[in-house]
């Protein structure tokens, strides 16, 4: 027992020293960073952090010395704990935890049989394991706190408010997009092989189900002829892809494809013109010649 303690004590000290080192490192970071971002941190803030880290350091030292003393004095503490008047008091139980009395966690196992006999089954009447009992109390406290936090104090956000916050934060992250379906963009069709092949793979995974693997048209119209329902110029195609034509079942792809991806796929579609794939659907819309 004693040897193991001796063994553990230096280990604990080493860990503590390491902890302190890292803590000091943390404490120093703002100082080191201070000259760089003088505008970011005022001297008051700096002082605040230094004092806070100092406080934490002191508390840690205090805690460690307390644990150290407790470990060193365990035999004496145990003697105190074993006094009959101490043992059953509230503070006595804290002392018991300190000197490592396992029955305080596991309960006293007396294994005294009750005079119960059910088809040969007997029953002990052992204590409720304290760890179990106090966990139960803890969950009850949690439950009461939880309900009062949200519904009595009304301090927490319920799902509607939570959603609004989430959307507000998202709006800050996402650049305000000119989301006006009536406004036409002024892009030029992309022509590099990289963009077109990216457009092709986007087409295969998103558009082919309705427009056919080669744009020949299935549920959706043929995209390889010269006829267009919503305009065949790249910015018109871009608009159709981005905002969709809900009444006819064309999905709006904004939010699912990025602006660049929409331009890539629009450019790829235009590159299909005149390819005359097998099984092409009959023309729909108005003829547009380039």
């Amino acid at each position: 027992m004693l040897t193991s303690m001796k063994f553990r004590f230096p280990a604990a000290l080493t860990i503590a020293a390491l902890l302190l080192n890292s803590l000091q490192a943390v404490a120093q970071t703002p100082e080191a960073a201070a000259p760089a971002k003088v505008a970011g941190m005022s001297s008051q803030q700096l002082l605040f952090w230094v004092l806070i880290s100092l406080l934490i350091f002191l508390l840690l030292v205090l805690l460690l010395s307390f644990v150290g003393i407790a470990v060193q004095m365990r035999p004496q503490l145990r003697k105190v704990y074993e006094l009959p008047t101490v043992r059953h008091s509230w503070s006595g139980r804290v002392l018991g935890l300190l000197v490592g009395d396992a029955t305080l966690v596991k309960g006293e196992v007396r294994d005294e049989l009750l005079d119960h006999d059910y088809d040969g089954i007997h029953e002990f009447d052992n204590d409720l394991p304290p760890w179990w009992k106090y966990s139960f109390y803890a969950t009850i406290i949690f439950a009461v706190t939880y309900v009062s936090y949200y519904h009595v104090a009304q301090a927490g956000q319920l799902q509607g408010a939570e959603y609004e916050t989430e959307m507000r934060q998202a709006a800050l992250l996402v650049s305000p997009d000119a989301d006006d379906p009536n406004k036409l963009t002024t892009y030029q069709p992309l022509a590099t092989p990289a963009d077109l092949s990216e457009g092709k793979s986007l087409f295969a995974s998103n558009c082919a189900a309705c427009h056919g693997q080669n744009g020949e048209g299935k549920v959706g119209p043929n995209l390889t002829d010269e006829y267009w329902l919503h305009g065949g110029e790249v910015n018109h195609v871009y608009k159709t892809v981005k905002f969709g034509v809900t009444s006819k079942g064309m999905v709006a792809w904004k939010g699912k494809l990025s602006g660049k991806q929409i331009l890539q796929v629009s450019s790829y579609i235009l590159s299909l013109r005149g390819t005359k794939p097998a099984g092409a659907k009959e023309p729909q819309g108005e003829k547009e010649t380039k």
């Binding site: 294994d111 049989l113 088809d119 089954i121 029953e123 002990f124 052992n126 204590d127 409720l128 179990w132």
Partner: peptide
């Protein structure tokens, strides 16, 4: 308890 042939641990827990 039948299979283990041991008394039930705690009546009051039950």
């Amino acid at each position: 308890p039948k299979a283990a042939e041991r008394p039930v641990y705690s009546y009051r827990l039950s």
